[in-house]
Amino acid sequence: MDFGSRSLRSLDRNDGGKIDPILARRAADAVPSIPRDAEGPIFREPWEAQAFAMALALHARGLFTWPEWADVLAQEIKRAHAAGDPDTGETYYLHWLNALERIVAAKGAADAQTLARYRHAWARAAERTAHGTPIVLEPEDLTD
């Protein structure tokens, strides 16, 4: 694709009525048709809702500002796009989660090492929990 968000950004946002028709045609040809959806479910999986709510709660607590958040999220989306993510919106909350992990580390709220330790602990907790039973983290899951 020969245009990125950087070049789009530089367009005058009030210039909507005066778009170069050749550029417009090229852009339209370069991207597949836009995915549509009904006004359907808001979150496709519970973890998406959890990740969304965590960002709101952390912002409300003053851990970061919305411009800071938008900046990190935009970087994650751009990076995923560059790495071949189709970026159709389906993977949006994965970018959101990446941004969340990065911003909590950058703000000193939770470092990558601690998060990795708790991921292993949750995996261990899941493994010892009978299927269909709520998974609960126990102190022993955190021991090495």
């Binding site: 694709m1 245009f3 968000s5 789009l8 367009l11 909507g16 778009i19 550029l23 417009a24 045609r25 852009a27 339209a28 991207v31 597949p32 048709s33 836009i34 995915p35 549509r36 959806d37 796009h81 189709p86 970026d87 159709t88 919106g89 389906e90 949006y92």
Partner: peptide, 15 residues
Amino acid sequence: VWYKSAPYRSRAVKD
């Protein structure tokens, strides 16, 4: 979903 997609984000401005 489509609002978050790259095609919408880029095409809405260009076309």
